[in-house]
């Protein structure tokens, strides 16, 4: 039985696609067959972050409209044989997503895969509601600032009312709060909301905190999911998130300002 995960936020630019890529890769690294789908039709980005932009032939919309078979559109990741990518169309718009079409594709995928990660577009319009409609779990990606927190809150409300689970009155979508671009320094200076503030406002289970890191930008530019960069704090934090999602109990890291040792202070940049 596969599980459908939606990565969503409401607001744009908070790290949804980075998270979706990291999550799918992290699950694949642990031996689960995973597929990540780009729902951002018309503004696709996932293929860049996954480093497969030059291998896109058919896309999600082609499959929905019956112009291609699912196997033709799925791109196999070169680094991990368990991971597949279903890219979005850049030339269509989101109206091409239909509830029946998306449902059919997800049903077909669930026969082959353990985890289906849906990378939602920003906003609360069709693309976003389609991405969440069939979800079992939701990662709500939030930056520690008020507009992002409010948009996430709105998104959580929509998750609880407009999903298939809500409509069929089944057990609701499991929601996890993922705080990204967290900077303890800026929290201390009062420029950012703290983990406690965000949790207090959203009253949601915290699955992880990803620290602000140059590694994320580097990873996007080079088309390697940041979770593969085990040296970086962001990469380690994403590994923790995957572990927690799979049921491991791990303490949250990178919440405090890093204390630099004497040598670090003498020789550090």
């Amino acid at each position: 039985m596969s599980r459908i995960i939606v990565v969503t936020s409401g607001k744009g630019g908070v790290g949804k696609t980075t998270t979706a890529a990291a999550l799918a890769m992290g699950l694949a690294e642990r031996g689960f067959r995973s597929v990540v789908i780009d729902f951002d039709v018309g503004l696709r980005n996932l293929d860049l972050i996954m480093g497969c932009e030059r291998r896109v032939v058919y896309d999600f919309i082609n499959v929905i409209q019956g112009e291609a078979r699912l196997n033709q559109a799925l791109i196999k990741d070169k680094r991990n044989e368990n991971l597949f990518i279903l890219p979005a169309s850049q030339t269509r718009d989101k109206e091409a997503l239909t509830k029946e079409g998306v449902g059919k594709v997800l049903t077909d995928l669930s026969e082959d895969f353990d985890y289906i990660v849906c990378d939602s577009p920003a906003g609360i319009e069709l693309g976003a509601t389609m991405a969440m409609y069939y979800a079992d779990d939701a990662f709500v990606v939030t930056n520690p600032e008020v507009s992002s927190v409010r948009d996430s809150d709105r998104m959580i409300g929509i998750l609880s009312s407009k999903s298939q689970r809500a409509e069929e009155d089944r057990e609701p979508i499991r929601e996890y709060l993922l705080l990204t671009r967290y900077s303890p320094q800026r929290v201390e200076r009062g420029e950012m909301l703290s983990v406690e503030d965000v949790q207090d406002i959203l009253s949601l289970d915290l699955i992880g905190v990803i620290p602000e890191s140059q590694a994320v930008l580097n990873a996007s530019n080079s088309g390697v999911p940041v979770i593969m960069d085990g040296e970086s704090t962001a990469g380690q934090a994403y590994s923790d998130v995957v572990a927690r999602y799979l049921g491991e109990q791990l303490p949250h890291r990178f919440l405090e300002i890093e204390k630099r040792g004497l040598l670090g202070r003498l020789f550090g940049g």
Binding site: D153, R154, I156, G157, I158, S160, S161, I201, L202, S203
Partner: peptide, 19 residues
């Protein structure tokens, strides 16, 4: 929790146990 964009209406009194 009553989320942003949601609205709760009570014909009589309303008791809220979540934010």
């Amino acid at each position: 929790p009553v989320r942003s964009g949601q609205r709760v209406y009570a014909q009589g009194d309303l008791v809220l146990l979540a934010p």
